[in-house]
């Protein structure tokens, strides 16, 4: 008895206006409408949401974990992107 798999969806919720949508979890649904309803029924039962996004998990393009070093390590040496890299005399005040 093998049952066909129901697609997996990722759920993102905006908790209140002013915040971005944040990943809260996943669920299974056959299509977008059912995924949206399930997201509402599963993930907003305690007033957690103002807005919901659902995305088919298979539609997400993720970076390759084996390329983690190539992708992300080069930024580690670019300390000039950080404010503490620059010396400003204290007399100038907060900047």
């Amino acid at each position: 008895m093998t049952e066909k798999n129901t697609p997996l969806w990722e759920v993102f919720i905006r908790a209140r206006n002013g915040l971005s949508h944040k990943h809260v979890g996943s669920l299974h649904a056959v299509d977008a409408e059912m995924a949206m309803q399930a997201a509402r029924d599963v993930y907003t039962r305690r007033g957690e949401g103002q807005s919901v996004w659902v995305v088919r998990s298979s539609d997400i393009v993720a970076s390759d974990p084996t390329e983690k070093e190539t992708m992300f390590e080069p930024t580690g040496s670019k300390i000039y992107r950080h404010p503490t890299f620059y010396d400003i005399p204290e007399d100038v005040g907060h900047m």
């Binding site: 093998t2 049952e3 997996l8 979890g25 996943s26 599963v42």
Partner: peptide
Amino acid sequence: GHGLYLYSAAETLGVSREELVG
């Protein structure tokens, strides 16, 4: 709901919900 969150967590390791329920 907790069962659902947990099945989802297990699924990130490459086993489907259907397989787990089976």
